[in-house]
Nucleic acid binder design. Sequence first.
RNA 1: CGCGGAGUAGAGCAGUCCGGUAGCUCGUCGGGCUCAUAACCCGAAGGUCACAGGUUCAAAUCCUGUCUCCGCAACCA
Length: 515
Amino acid sequence: MPRTFYITTAIDYTNAPPHIGHAYEKIAADAIARWHRMLGEDVFFLTGVDEHGVKIEKAAAAEGISPQEFVGRISPQFISTWAKLGVKYDRFIRTTDDHHEKAVQQAFSRLLAQGDIYKAKYEGLYCAGCEEFKNERDLVDGKCPQHGAPPQPFSEENYVLAIAKYKDRIRAHIEANPDFVQPESRRNEILNLLETFPDVSVSRQKVKWGIPVPGDESQVIYVWIDALLNYVTGIGWGSDEAMFAKYWPANCQLIGKDITKFHCIIWPTVLLALDIPLPRQVYGHGWVNIGEQKMSKSLGNVIEPNAIADQFGADALRYYLLREITFGKDGSYTFDNFKLRVNADLANNLGNALNRTLGMLEKNFQGAVPADVPGVTAELRDRVVETRATAAVHMEKLEIQETLETLWGLIDAVNKYIDTQAPWALAKAGETEKLGGVLYGVLEALRVVTILVSPFIPHLAEKLWEQIAVPEALADQRWEALEWGGLVAGQQTNKTGPVYPRIEDELAEAGTKKK
RNA sequence: CGCGGAGUAGAGCAGUCCGGUAGCUCGUCGGGCUCAUAACCCGAAGGUCACAGGUUCAAAUCCUGUCUCCGCAACCA
């Protein structure tokens, strides 16, 4: 039985279409999932959407349609975007899925019966215009800035989760398991927050669009119970216990840094109360800023991943986000940077390396793979072995940027090797055997590179693979396939041209670039 | 004294946990090669690692203090 690897992402809120931030998280999760598949593990990758809640209720009302109809429009946009970006998940969960709703109600009942959920009065200031509770700091001169009227004191009876009961165990777990909260910078923050973190309300009276509280139809279950439980219901908790037992606990729960506290305090509380083991890791990644600014609708700088993928290819976006942003920290997207990175690494270094190699093979060997000459290729072979090992170490720690740096270091080495060996000179001198060895080495290194980069840029890797023309499918290549010598002499390559064309300045620079 | 992030070459960043010749990409300048997507290879210039103290044989890295910038209301990962 291969080792299992269960990875989840946050489920996105479907009150608006996906943007580049949503895409970043899914792409990262996908790359990690694909890497582990390559290692030969039994991977389950869960993602999905949160379709409940007041904002969706409102957004639907604004369009004069039902919430069901509304999410029925939005959720498919997430699905199609992930398809376009090559995000290959095993399950896409929607919080409106029947088995999920049932399991959530069961969990709620159990927590209530155990006393882990209790009833309490929630008091606050309610603005009828906004239909929501306001904080003191939201108000201007004691009035709602949107409606100009003072909100009314209001109290409602809610169901509350008893986090206090589990704080000690959560703290102990975080302290005993350094990998539980990652990156490390978030750990101390969580330990700090834990001290003062209050019991939270897990139901809403005023919201209609949600899972009803069992036995109390006047309220719906709030996001902390509803949405968080997707991570277990998505692999069968409450519906397919065998599957759940197989994959849980999750190896990696990838989320945005802002919701780390909910995933490291509320979520463990729910799990502990339900006697479910805690996940091995919660990883809070950073934001994608747009240039210097935070992305926001009000600033009007929201970037749509679809548009970029359509114009420049999904892998360009995947590569840029994974290579440019230190995983765990904030990063920024600018078109100029995007273009530079993608041109340099995908077109100039990787794509061109294969293209020049296949060109020489065609010219000198009619496109057939020559025989390895160990004495000639030893240098590259060593480099391949070293790269594979280093990349594995980085990926184990989710150092995606360093992983890509390492892989591109090998690509650089390949280009350098070509220059140093000067195959064109060998051809002129008639040193056919050595020439063959050089080209074998280069192509073999590129074969390994293709497999290694495939989790990150799957579509481009596929194109490279087709031209190298290894008979077996790229998707079937596992760790063992990275051993030197996989390329069989005599096999015919299939040169069809550049795999990734450079992004040219045709539009923006049309008037200014010409001399 | 609210919380948290950040300040490293012209630009964008890594390195900081586990002190020891300051690294990457792009850009600039010079050279090489000609198989290739005006690509590839080599070399050079360019940094008081925000500032001030301290610890140390040695500090971008550890400690203390100061300054500056950015998030933490909403849309929102």
